[in-house]
Design a protein around this nucleic acid. Structure first.
Lengths: 343, 343
DNA sequence: AAGCTTTAAGTTACCCGTAACGTAAGTATG
DNA sequence: CATACTTACGTTACGGGTAACTTAAAGCTT
């Protein structure tokens, strides 16, 4: 029984050919519609294909080196963050419409996980790779350089990418938010986010934010949750800790909208009014950001479009079309009503 | 140039072997740690492996039929729904920890997309498949039966699965919600959801819901958004349409929490008080469900756990361990405070 | 009808790694 | 010292499909 489940149970092209009374090669030609066979032969072969339920083994084709695979490896830090889920959706939908498949890798924000995943996925001879972030381990970078396949680094716009890059300038987006909050009259501002071993887009954003605030004479009090995912609950508890520290912040900027929601909820539970008692600003502009009566102050990023753009660059490169190696997908500040009005 | 990018640029085992002055077979043994070689030989080979940056071609290994692939195909309707994103995260994390890779397929809630994806992914000789839902096209079902690989159908608990199944009983969960809302004193109840060509878990839930409400003497007014994704905006507009129809519903049950948030937002925008003027109930219990001051009435489902369980069943089967073919992951009603108190 | 072209096939070699088998040394045993 | 055994390799064949080449038959030309 267990033997039957192994692959020898699958019908091969030779079996189809034998059943149809032709050679393997003729059957192959029929299946690829290459021409060079009679109608009678085609019908005979196709009949047997249906009858035996033959499915081609793409492994063999790719392995033989005649064509590249249809796999594209896609690494994403985590899906708990709705933002990345949407990016992935954009990528997979677009890739799928061009007959390509996504091989997923969740790297949990660590370079080691990413490196391991890259090693594994490369051994499957993917057509290309789409990676989140610009920071890779030295060994990963070496493997990527040697791979000789198209690579798109997304999320964090990279002016000197390994190959191609699409995303936004996170430093600038943080800077713009900092400047905006300063313009609203805040100067003692908190930041709540997560913290990981390696640099990432969120830290770049924070850098830009601090530069704007501190450059404008304000100060930033940080509250970082170590090794946590940037979701609702850490936002709640991070806010609690930040406010308990007695730093007297008037406004809090969060790593993303989900964390900002956590913060809003904490404030509501303590009877604090937003924005009268405290200002709240998120980042990412989730669709759900308008669920609260007041529109969440945030930074809009076209997530789905970003994913699609990444897939398009990949497809373009795989089709040998000329591709602009860097694409800025842009962002837009949502003033919202959860911070004091700047007017 | 273009030639270089093709696979002949990749270092093969033969090249490593030649460089190390041994046969292919010896190099292979060293890399697999199989034994049968001297320390000197091992060092020589490993040195060349590092030097040349050799990466094994797993395609060849699998192709040779010596072992099955490490791919597991995973089909998910869409990632716009946070629920499925979490399920996928649970699956991929667990699979990854056992050295398996997810090949993703977003089927957009259509059987045709699913069938196409199944055909493609099977041609890559996956070790197994994890599919969302129990309804597949006839041709898909046939391919799945012939594939001879483990298959886990998730989400919708299936007492007679193709192979294995893990999920919840959606009919019962809808029924329980219906009974709860009736117990709160509602009898004229609305439902807002999406509608697709084929049956799915949401329609099963609605069936259970109707049975409870209508069986208890109430009535259900349905508002279905055709071919839409079950997210925030359709919830908003679906609510608008339902209320404009003049059906006078006192309470609305939504296909999921995201849609319920849209409904909440619509009600807030019209100055309606929840639950005084209208009751709101969601389904799925997203973490963010507590962001509103009042806890959203909902149905809790352990999404991440569901994904993990699916992956565990797959791994178990692939390791020839005995696996219980059906697993009910359970649900739990969250009374919340967005419907009238039943007390 | 002989010679040429076209059509419809078949044959061979190859991709890369591994199972199975072969072999030549060295080691142990009686 | 002959025999059996172990170690450390090498050699051959194979998997499923396709490129490149070969071949046989049919069709066409003059």
């Amino acid at each position: 029984m267990k033997e039957k489940i192994s692959k020898n149970s699958r019908v091969s092209l030779s079996e189809v050919a034998r059943a149809a009374g032709v050679s393997k090669m003729t059957a192959s030609r029929v299946l690829r519609g290459e021409g060079g066979y009679s109608e009678k032969t085609r019908d005979k072969v196709m009949e047997k294909v249906d009858q035996l339920g033959y499915l081609p083994n793409r492994l063999a084709t790719v392995f033989a080196g005649d064509q590249s695979s249809t796999f594209v490896g896609v690494s994403i830090p985590d899906l708990g963050n709705e933002v990345f889920a949407q990016v992935l959706e954009g990528i997979d939908r677009k890739l799928g419409s061009f007959g390509r498949q996504t091989v997923l890798g969740l790297t949990q924000h660590t370079q080691q996980e990413e490196e391991n995943w890259i090693r594994t996925v490369l051994s499957w001879q993917p057509a290309g790779l789409i990676l989140t972030g610009r920071y890779h381990s030295p060994r990963a970078t070496e493997m990527l350089r040697n791979a000789g396949i198209p690579i798109v680094e997304i999320w964090d716009l990279n002016s000197s990418p390994l190959d191609m890059s699409v995303g936004i300038n996170h430093f600038d987006s943080g800077f713009d938010m900092g400047r905006y909050l300063m313009s609203c009259g805040y100067s003692n501002i908190g930041y709540v986010g997560t913290s990981h071993d390696t640099a990432n887009a969120a830290t770049t954003r924070l850098d830009g934010f601090c530069k704007a605030v501190e450059g404008g004479g304000g100060r930033v009090v940080k509250q970082l949750c170590l090794h946590d995912t940037a979701t609702y609950y850490p936002g709640f508890y991070g806010t609690e800790q930040l406010l308990a520290s007695g730093s007297g912040v008037e406004c809090i900027f969060y790593q993303n909208d989900a964390m900002a929601f956590g913060g809003l909820q904490y404030c509501a539970s303590k009877g604090m009014q937003v924005p009268q008692d405290i200002g709240i600003a998120g980042w990412g502009d989730l669709p759900i950001a308008s669920v609260i009566a007041r529109r969440l102050t945030s930074m809009h990023v076209p997530h789905l479009k970003l994913g699609q753009a990444a897939a398009e660059m990949m497809i373009g490169r795989l089709s040998d079309e000329p591709v602009e190696p860097c694409r800025d997908i842009g962002f837009r500040l949502i003033p919202g009503t959860t911070v004091r009005n700047s007017a």
